[in-house]
Each structure stands twice: as C-alpha cells, then as structure tokens.
Design a binder for these strands. Structure first.
Length: 268
DNA sequence: GGCGTAGTGCCCGTTACTTCA
DNA sequence: CCTGAAGTAACGGGCACTACG
C-alpha cells in the first residue's frame, strides 16, 4: 500500500475544543507521497514532529483524532475522547509513544518488524502490570467515570480510549462467562428434570401394571367366594357355594370380627 | 412543554492481531 | 516452519440518555 510513504506530521493544538476548531488542514503531495498535516498552531502546546519518521500505527491513531478534528461527520471518533482535555492527553500519550524507541521507526531500515501498512492496526499488548492495575480497578467498579478513566490512563500511560475499551471488553468477557455459567446451570437443571421425568414415568408404568394384576387377582378370588356362616358374608369356598351378589366382594379391613375367607373348615 | 440536534456512554458484533500448542 | 484455535485490543453501528437552543 504505502510502505514507502514518507510521513510527516505537524500537530498543534489551540485551546478551542475540537469541534469548534475547523482549522485542521490536511495536504498531500502525490508526487513524493508525502503527507503533511497541519492543525492550528496557536498554542504553547505546539509540538513539531516533522523530523520524526512515524510508525504508521501511531499515525493511524493520530489519524483517528485528526478525523474528529476535521470531519464533523465522524462523531464516533470525536466522542471517543470524552473531552478536549482527554483529546489533549491522547495526543500527549501519542507524543510519548512517538518519541519512545519503539515508536520511532525508520522506514528505510531493513528491519520490517514494526512497519505496517497505513490503515492496518497494530495491536498493543498490555503489560502484566497494566492488566493487573486495570483488573484491580475493575474489581472495585466495573464502569468508570471520566475522571477515573483519565486518572487510570495517566497512571498506566495509556490513552483514555484504551482504558475505556479495556473496560468494555472486560465487561463483555464477564458477561460471556456468566452466560456460560448460567448455561451450565440450566443444562444441569434440564438433565435433573429429565431424570425425574424418566423416574416418574417408570413409576406410573409400575403402578399401572400393579393395578392390572390386582384387579385380575380380585376377579379370580371373586369367582371362588363362599358365605361365612356366622356373619353371612361371602368368602371363597368353591363352586356351588351360596353367593350374595351384594356382598360378593368384601375386603373387611377394620371389621370387628375376623373372617377367614376361603378356609371354611377353620371357621369358628 | 415539545422538538430537533449534538454529545456521551455503553453494548454488541466483528475484525485484526498475537500467542501458543 | 506452518497452521488453526483461543484470547483480546480495537473498531463501527446502534441505542438510550441528557443538555441545549
């Protein structure tokens, strides 16, 4: 893409909020593919990096900010910095990155390790310390207000936007984990209910078959009922015995007198 | 008070990059 | 060395809310 593009950047900031500052000027020179960016230079904050060769990654970041300065339709990037102050801090951070050994990349250098096409994003890996601090902060509060965000960013030498993104991603991870846990609980619940359902169905079948066999036994004994001579109740006694249709079946649980159905010889 | 607009924060889905097995 | 999976920083779109004219 623009691997050989020589980039030079001139950044300056006035105290005017970005959306009120329309003095951003972007110029390109197609002949030598040199990109020069000039913003208002009316502030003591003016920094000139014309002589620096910039890691396109960093330019990408700066470019994001630039778009918010110059393009009113790019609300998103603009609002990423919650205030102009933050934007200034963003640029300050970028300045630190720019002058840090890793931030300075000579495109003429054969080492292509840090050279990326303009427009691609080079992902910053947070250090263990940064992650730990962010993690601790997240334990205290899962969301940040502007001041907390700024403080944290300053403390970790990150941009507020990075802190914000980290918290957003962290919340998403937490939510995802919780969803997985909930899923697991529901799955377990479902398995338990399935087992219970299976058990109950089995019980129903057993009861049904028990009922069937009992009614069969009742019919069988009814066919051999005889009359108890002392109380004239029916009992099992073989064919030809006296039968009273109304008292043919008699389960005398709780009766005061014991009856020995089917064993006439042992009665009384 | 209702309305349109701009700013802001957050969520969600996705992409791009890094790391590791 | 290559590759695919997993982890995660970063992004863009959309929505809700608030402030302001």
């Amino acid at each position: 893409m623009m691997c050989n593009t020589r980039l030079s950047l001139s950044l300056g900031l006035s105290s005017t909020p970005p959306h009120q500052n329309n003095k951003g000027k972007l110029s390109t020179n197609d002949d030598n593919q040199e990109l020069t960016l000039c913003l208002s230079t009316s502030s003591e904050f003016t920094n000139n990096y014309d002589n620096n060769r910039i890691n396109p990654q960093l330019l990408g970041g700066v470019n994001s900010s630039v778009s918010s300065f110059s393009n009113t339709s790019s609300v998103k990037r603009e609002r990423d910095a919650s205030s102009f102050e933050e934007e200034v801090e963003n640029l300050e951070t970028k300045r630190v990155l720019l002058i840090s050994p890793k931030g300075l990349v000579d495109h003429n250098d054969d080492d292509e390790e840090d050279v990326h096409d303009y427009g691609t994003r080079k992902k910053l890996r947070l250090t263990k310390e940064q992650s730990d601090v962010l993690e601790d902060s997240f334990k205290e509060h899962t969301t940040l207000n502007s001041k907390q965000k700024r403080d944290l960013a300053r403390r970790l030498s990150l941009r507020p936007r990075q802190v914000e993104v980290w918290f957003q991603n962290r919340r998403a991870r937490t939510k995802l984990k919780q969803t997985e846990v909930d899923c697991e609980i529901l799955r377990k619940c479902y398995e338990d209910l399935k087992d219970e359902n299976r058990r109950l169905n089995k019980e129903i079948q057993e009861l049904k078959s028990l009922k069937k066999s009992q009614s069969f036994r009742v019919q069988l004994s009814a066919a051999t009922l005889c009359m108890c001579p002392s109380c004239e109740r029916t009992y099992g006694g073989g064919a030809g015995g006296a039968t009273d249709n109304s008292t043919k079946i008699s389960f005398s649980i709780g009766d005061q007198k014991p009856h020995f159905y089917g064993i006439p010889s042992q009665i009384h």
